[in-house]
């Protein structure tokens, strides 16, 4: 998959744990884990909106396109 999810990087920058993010964005740990491990096939705009709001970042900070 050429799209890489840099959720762990953003979490480290904001010094936030996955559990904390899970509670704040109201998404299950299992689903966030899927996203973090880059296993997700798709991401809803509402999820992206919530994550960006909590982490105070842009979608581009979480998602990255890689040709490799």
């Amino acid at each position: 998959m050429p799209i890489i999810v840099n959720l762990d990087v953003m979490l480290a920058k904001r010094k936030m744990s996955l559990t904390e993010l899970s509670e704040k964005v109201d998404i299950t740990m299992a689903n966030l884990s899927v996203l973090k491990k880059n296993h997700a096939r798709a991401i809803r705009f509402s999820t992206l909106d919530a994550i960006c709001k909590v982490l105070d970042c842009q979608p581009g900070d979480i998602l990255e396109y890689s040709t490799e």
Binding site: N31, L32, V34, H39, A40, R41, A42, I43, R44
Partner: peptide
Amino acid sequence: KLEQDLTV
């Protein structure tokens, strides 16, 4: 279902 489940 797989697609749906892997949609976060």
